[in-house]
Design a protein around this nucleic acid. Structure first.
Lengths: 236, 236
DNA sequence: CAAATAATTATTGTATTCAATTTGTATTTT
DNA sequence: AAAATACAAATTGAATACAATAATTATTTG
């Protein structure tokens, strides 16, 4: 069956979302309309439409007569993120437990299966995307139109922050990742039981793990090397 | 000076936002591209662009091959609203107190002046819009990109709910409105002092006033009229 | 030679035209 | 007469063409 223009547009949207989340497109980088239109076989009209859509979701930012850029991450973003994340994550997860439908629960379990798979075989991007999907589903479960926008905005930057700080070079990190997976399982159980309070608490625990991980990389233990002698200085 | 296309587009955006907030455009009603393009002297391309923009902000909802509708308010919206509003309002107001710039404080004072003016002379729409602007400014003051989307979404429906339930026929309501104005003043003072905790509490008080008002209209005291005799029924 | 300014190029924004999907109506068929 | 199908009108989506704005280069001038 022939690929329709609607398919190509959907591909574009999915690709851009993925590339922003995985930092393939770096914050602040600007997207060229002509090039993208070319590569996706679309005219500029639907392409700009897609830009607007992604701008509304927080992936991109449109500037007057200067096109679309990947939404920036400045010096305040990390602080803003730390302030907002626990509140939104816990309330969303609580509401998810109180409102999840059986079909959504199945979706969440599938997402968790994919997440576990990404821990073994996958790379950082796969893991980030799988984790992102897991939490996006909790947002759908909560089904609160007033909180969902903030959750989705948070999830974008959580993915990007993870991609920056969270590269499992050492085994401590790998352990944290498998702990995160166990926490996901706990959240699924709480939702299955319809236990909102428990789900909210588990979400906070889950956040604390993530927060600690980020902090470790933002504030590493200081280097402890001796100051080198300046050129021409006398040696003792 | 001649009116440029950009001006006409800005007018369109402002008008649509205003009409949605004031319920001139009712929830669920659909917008005709051709007609609007005609009346604003724009082609359909920038018009559809505006639709996308307003969709991202939550004013409109786009449906596949069925154009744009004013975002609906269903049976769950009021409950979702009651759940999310106090949390978002209090955190935004707290952050506003902690981060407001002098220029923003001036803006807020101006907005409050306009709000007071609307209490005397203005109609319900003016008052709603002035109140909306006041709280939107607190959102800018908070300056947290993760919370702002939810606040803005809340403010849209708060305005629309107010327009439905909140018509000062009796003096009790007028009193509430002037109380709300005093609470605004208190919030301004707390922000001026940089007192986040106080600002957050005042925001909660302010919300409680609004909530009580809404509840009164959603759950009025029941009618107490006798059932009429059916035709042909014997009278006692 | 440096700064300022003018012309050129590139990119974004808008209008118009064309195609595809949907909806309403009319006709046919059972 | 009711249901189904086919046709027509209207509306939405995409492509092309055109205009306006910003960035860059070249040129002029002090």
């Amino acid at each position: 069956m022939p690929e329709t223009a609607k398919d190509r547009k959907a591909n574009l949207l999915a690709d851009l979302r993925r590339d922003v989340l995985t930092m393939v497109l770096e914050p602040g980088s600007d997207l060229d309309e002509a090039t993208l239109a070319e590569t996706y076989g679309l005219s500029r009209t639907p392409l700009r439409d897609a830009f607007r859509e992604l701008t509304g979701e927080g992936y991109l930012t449109l500037h007057q007569n200067r096109g679309a850029r990947v939404t920036d991450m400045g010096h305040r973003t990390l602080r803003d993120f730390f302030l907002a994340a626990p509140m939104i994550y816990s309330s969303i997860t609580q509401l998810a437990a109180e409102n999840a439908t059986p079909a959504q629960l199945d979706q969440l379990k599938d997402a968790q299966t994919a997440f576990k798979a990404s821990l073994h075989s996958g790379n950082a991007a796969d893991r980030t995307l799988a984790n992102n999907r897991f939490h996006a589903i909790t947002g759908e479960m909560a089904g609160n139109v007033y909180l969902q926008p903030s959750l989705n905005r948070l999830l974008i930057d959580h993915a990007r922050i993870s991609m920056t700080f969270y590269q499992p070079r050492n085994s401590a990190m790998a352990e944290n990742v498998s702990l995160a997976s166990e926490q996901h399982d706990g959240i699924i159980r709480a939702i299955e039981q319809g236990n909102g309070a428990k789900a909210a608490q588990l979400a906070l625990d889950h956040w604390e793990l993530s927060r600690g991980q980020i902090e470790l990389f933002v504030m590493p233990t200081a280097l402890d090397a001796p100051l080198g002698a300046a050129p021409g200085a006398r040696t003792a």
